[in-house]
Design a protein around this nucleic acid. Structure first.
Length: 274
DNA sequence: TTAAATTCCTGTAAGC
DNA sequence: TGCTTACAGGAATTTA
């Protein structure tokens, strides 16, 4: 599923091909994928717009137009945003197509439809609560270990639940929460506020390392994730714990455990993580 | 106020 | 083989 590294890969790939392009037409095969504004208004507003920049905030893709309006794309679980030639056959579950003036199309596809599209100024989307307030970017050099420690101290829930909370830290999902906790040798069910400063520093480092390595490897295609060209990533072959329940821990050789935290399957090593 | 549970959704795979 | 059922999970919403 797309998390920060996967979204970052898509954004970096799309940027040079989208900046400066104009949307000449928009078709919504499944209009309810648009959450703001109403579908007709969405189409009217997006057509004729010229793309100024392509960015990311947490797991959100931000396509900015020249009048400060944003097209926001959240991929949910199975969302894919692909840039294809207009003549390429339409894949199943394609819910939105943005036609560009150079005969290319930006297509949004999403089997489970957990994803969504939004359009509006950042201020309008935030104030209308269509977009949530997000925590700091974990790979931002400004994001200090001290900041992570402060946020963990405030919470009486499982450490992993805090990592998954987009309002606490932006962009971390099930894969990289498990990966970074394993790297930091911390149990996912530890109550966040009981974590020492020393451990928080380790988790801060592990979080950054897990995400940056995954970006370098173009993300994890563990489920249906594909990049902007429809290609798989490479990180799925290098994951330490995610999806490896029952298999031996790479450090101690004992079988990895699986429990449920915050409704998610959680894999960790009972020997190496405390 | 915070935390936990529920809901949405379809493809896949396990079980009979 | 074919059918049924459980499971995967991001985040908005509801309940505790």
């Amino acid at each position: 599923m797309p998390e920060l590294p996967e979204v970052e890969t898509i954004v970096a790939d799309l940027r040079p091909h989208l900046v400066g392009r104009t949307i000449t037409r928009c078709e919504l095969a499944f209009p309810t994928i648009v959450r703001h504004p109403e579908p007709e208004e969405f189409i009217d507003a997006v057509v004729g717009m010229r793309i100024e920049s392509v960015g990311r905030r947490g797991k959100y893709i931000l396509i900015r137009f020249d009048n400060n309006v944003l097209l926001v794309v959240h991929l949910g679980m199975t969302g894919q945003l692909r840039l294809v030639d207009a003549v390429s056959p339409l894949a199943k579950h394609t819910h939105a197509v943005f036609f560009l003036e150079n005969n290319m199309q930006l297509r949004y596809r999403d089997t489970r439809r957990f994803g969504r599209l939004l359009l509006g100024t950042q201020e309008a989307l935030l104030s209308s609560k269509k977009m949530p307030q997000l925590g700091p970017e974990p790979i931002d050099p400004e994001f200090a270990a001290e900041e992570l420690y402060r946020r963990l101290r405030k919470r009486r829930t499982a450490l992993k639940a805090v990592l998954l909370d987009q309002g606490a830290i932006a962009g971390v999902g099930n894969i990289y929460a498990d990966e970074s906790l394993h790297r930091a040798r911390l149990r996912p069910d530890r109550i966040a506020r009981t974590v020492s400063k020393r451990s928080a520093v380790r988790l801060h480092e592990s979080l950054r390392e897990s995400l940056l390595v995954a970006i370098a490897n173009r993300g994890s295609s563990v489920d249906t994730y594909r990049d902007a060209w429809g290609e798989i990533g490479g990180q799925q072959e290098k994951l330490l714990v995610y999806g490896r329940a029952g298999e031996p821990c790479f450090t101690c050789g004992r079988p990895l455990s699986s429990i449920r935290i915050a409704g998610r399957t959680t894999v960790f090593c009972r020997t190496c993580q405390h």
